[in-house]
Write a protein that binds this DNA or RNA. Structure first.
Length: 432
RNA sequence: GUGGGUAUAGCUUAGUUGGUUAAAGCGCCAGUUUGUGGCACUGGAGACCGUCGGUUCGAAUCCGACUAUCCACCCCA
């Protein structure tokens, strides 16, 4: 296949037959964010490269090898956003949104870009929905964040198909102590650990906990747990989050091995995971990042958020057999014979469409029979044949395509009213 | 970046030990006499058999390389 008819590696098209699924989950997530008091923020796809280096973290894989970075003609280094938080945080600082009153609660729905090998449910261009809360250190904010995510999954009927895994990785102070303990522990096994884990030993020993190699994970089983090392403040915070989730009836499992790959996380981290999506089981991930705003040059502003992968969410809905309601099919198809009929059809359609009903006529120039076949194919609920006779009489036969029943209908200004009366009476619409 | 699988029409596939114009189903388009869809029937469009090279009288079929794609490692949503 030639280059110009081939999409770029790792990018996906959303085809007309599927776009309603995206629209459905997008609008559901927006409305859920609204009910929790989050307002949308839209930021550019690209940012100064330095923002991500500082925000996401220089040592992360995302920054080190997955960014789409390029120079402008003026020589500025820009990067396509690999995630949504950094841009939102930048806008918060640039516009001093925190002066509008705390907390600041925003949501975003964006495309993100990471230069990775493509895999099932992992793409180079992917879409994230995320929530962010800035300016509160209270466990209540953590609980609200998690409840919002849970609520979205519940509304999509997959709330019980995902496992919420929860952990606290502490603040920088207690984490330093934990790192020391981990290094000490894993140093005993340097001859057995895999190559990548050996390199992780110095840089980020927590990652070893996450290694899928049987040898490493066996060794990791005996490793010290974060929760034994976090300080009293962090422990109290974590207990507070759990208490609130218990009260709210949100189920979770504490998994001390959850390690998030972005440097900005502190204290609470969580993931909603499934095992029905192959290797990429994390549908939603997030946590607290109390140091992020300060890292970007602002005042200290404790914050938190999560991001939800839309491709993965849709894949999960599909895997779990959740049916997304299809958009309304054609309500009325007008078959036409001749030029004056076509002109008349345009008038009638305008009346019906002004009532937000999907209505169509022939724009191909097909025979009557072919027009009827087409009406059937697109699932038209009613059809109408318009020819010289109908125009002369100013009346036509409205046909119910399901039952085949016909009834006379006026073609004057009463048309839309009469049609809608019949339409509402005879057609059934399914609601989710 | 490292492995493994796969590559025939828009989709799903058939193609016998290498042998003439590469099949089928679905889908698409048109038609089955004069103004009415679903069913059925008829016809049509649509494939340089992923690409390049090699073996051979002859390659969709055998060999090699490349490319694409899928899955996994890694990473993460």
């Amino acid at each position: 296949m030639s280059l110009i008819t081939k999409r770029v590696y790792g990018a996906e098209d959303v085809l007309p037959k599927d776009s309603y699924k995206w629209q459905f989950v997008e609008s559901l997530m927006r409305s859920e964010a609204d009910t929790f008091g989050f307002k949308e923020i839209r930021t550019p796809v690209f940012e100064h490269t330095e923002l991500f280096r500082r925000g996401v973290g220089d040592t992360t894989d995302v920054v080190q090898k997955e960014m789409y970075t390029f120079d402008t003609k003026g020589g500025t280094s820009l990067t396509l956003r690999p995630e949504g938080t950094a841009g939102a945080a930048r806008a918060l600082l640039e516009h001093a949104i925190y002066n509008d009153g705390l907390p600041v609660k925003v949501y975003y729905l964006v495309s993100c870009y990471r230069y990775e090998k493509k895999q099932a449910n992992r793409y180079r261009e992917f879409h994230q929905f995320g929530l962010e809360t800035y300016g509160t250190a209270s466990p209540a904010a953590d609980a609200e964040m998690i409840c919002a995510a849970q609520s979205i999954f519940d509304r999509l009927q997959i709330g019980d198909k995902l496992t919420l895994e929860l952990n606290s990785i502490g603040c920088p102070k207690c984490r330093a102590k934990y790192y020391e303990a981990l290094k000490e522990y894993f140093s005993q096994y340097t001859s057995e650990l895999c190559e990548t884990c050996l390199s992780r030993l110095e840089r980020n020993p927590m990652r070893i906990l996450d290694c899928k190699s049987p040898v490493c994970s066996k060794i990791a089983e005996g490793a010290p747990t974060v929760l034994d090392y976090i300080c009293d403040d962090c422990r109290e915070h974590f207990e507070g989050v759990k208490r609130l989730l218990d009260n709210a009836g949100v189920k979770y499992v504490v998994n001390p091995k959850i390690v998030r790959g972005l440097d900005y996380y502190t204290r609470t981290v969580f993931e909603f995971v499934t095992n029905s999506l192959g290797a990429q089981g994390t549908v939603c991930g997030g946590g607290r990042y109390d140091g992020l705003i300060e890292e970007l040059g602002g005042q200290s502003l404790p914050s938190l958020g999560f991001a939800l992968g839309i491709e993965r969410l849709l894949a999960l809905l599909d895997a779990e057999g959740v049916e997304i309601p299809k958009p309304d099919e054609c309500g009325l198809y007008i078959a036409v014979m001749g030029d004056s009929a076509q002109a008349k059809a345009f008038d009638l359609l305008a009346q019906v469409r002004s009532c937000s009903i999907h209505a169509e006529t022939d724009i191909v120039g097909r025979s009557l029979r072919a027009q009827m076949k087409y009406a059937d194919k697109i699932g038209a609920k009613f059809s109408l044949v318009l020819g010289d006779n109908e125009i002369a009489e100013n009346k036509a036969e409205l046909k119910n395509m399901e039952t085949g029943e016909k009834r006379k209908i006026n073609l004057d200004s009463r048309f839309a009213d009469e049609f809608i009366a019949v339409y509402c009476d005879e057609s059934t619409t399914i609601s989710f």
